[in-house]
């Protein structure tokens, strides 16, 4: 059974008060759930949130499915999001992603066997002057080289 931590519950309660309408609290609450549920949001968690917030599950689902930052299935401990938009693609990120996938033996969006990684190609993250770049969980890693990127992944346990 999914349940938010006490701190998480307090957070959602505050968010429900924070904006002019309670529905505006859906996005921040989904972030909180994702944070407490190993980086993704399950159907069960939506049900929990619906009860807790007093908002129909269908309404929460509508928001949940619209936004790409909410993960619909389990992700690795490190969610590696490689920017493959123009500036980063020019700097070789598509090739770089391919080497990651080959090396770790997964497809895009899958979790590696050891549970460490999920690789996703994403659109521009607004750090194009420091291309090639990728985001691992919340952190940006910029001005990568194929070697520095590989090394970085190796060090993530």
């Amino acid at each position: 059974m999914f349940e938010l931590s006490t701190q998480g519950q307090e957070f959602v309660k505050k968010e429900l008060q924070r904006y002019e309408t309670v529905e505006s609290a859906i996005i921040p609450s989904l972030y909180q759930v994702q944070k407490e549920n190993d980086g993704w949001v399950s159907e069960e968690a939506i049900g929990y949130l619906s009860d807790f917030m007093g908002i129909p599950a269908a309404r929460i689902n509508e928001v949940f499915h619209f936004y790409t930052m909410f993960n619909k299935k389990p992700v690795g401990k490190y969610h590696v999001q490689v920017c493959c938009n123009v500036a980063c693609a020019m700097a070789g990120t598509r090739e770089m992603t391919k080497t990651f996938l080959d090396e770790y033996g997964v497809k895009e969006g899958e979790v590696t066997e050891d549970g460490r990684f999920t690789f996703t190609k994403v659109e521009c993250l607004g750090a194009c002057d420091k291309a090639p770049m990728m985001q691992i969980n919340e952190d940006y890693h910029e001005n990568l080289t194929p070697e520095s990127a590989r090394q970085l992944l190796k060090e993530l346990k």
Binding site: Y19, S24, I27, L30, Y31, F66, Y67, T68, M69, F70
Partner: peptide, 8 residues
């Protein structure tokens, strides 16, 4: 106040 989007 701020409001954070979620990828769109």
């Amino acid at each position: 106040d701020i409001y954070r989007g979620a990828g769109a």
